[in-house]
Write a protein that binds this DNA or RNA. Structure first.
Length: 84
DNA sequence: GATGAGCGG
């Protein structure tokens, strides 16, 4: 089961991080097609996590295997397969 | 001018 797409959940990221920074960081393990930082719709504040979309599933899983727990801007990055 | 949950429209 688990028909998860090529989206990867990125958590524990610094609030001052931009999509370009994340895209460049995840582009090292695969081809990033889109990067989306999740913000609260009601308050407009960043929730502290983002989503990275890959062109291939291999890149997504590679990101989880390589960038999960990696040090990003002084914070340990959390990478996992997205549920959506 | 400020936050820490963790899955977005």
């Amino acid at each position: 089961m688990a028909s998860q797409g090529f989206s990867v959940y990125v958590g524990n990221a610094p609030y001052q991080t931009s999509e370009d920074e994340i895209g460049s960081f995840f582009s090292n393990v695969g081809h990033v097609t889109n990067v989306r930082i999740v913000c609260d719709r009601e308050t407009g504040r960043p929730r502290g996590f983002a989503f990275v979309e890959f062109a291939d599933e291999a890149g997504a899983q590679r990101a989880v295997n390589e960038l999960n727990g990696a040090d990003f801007n002084g914070r340990q990055l959390r990478v996992n397969l997205a549920s959506r």
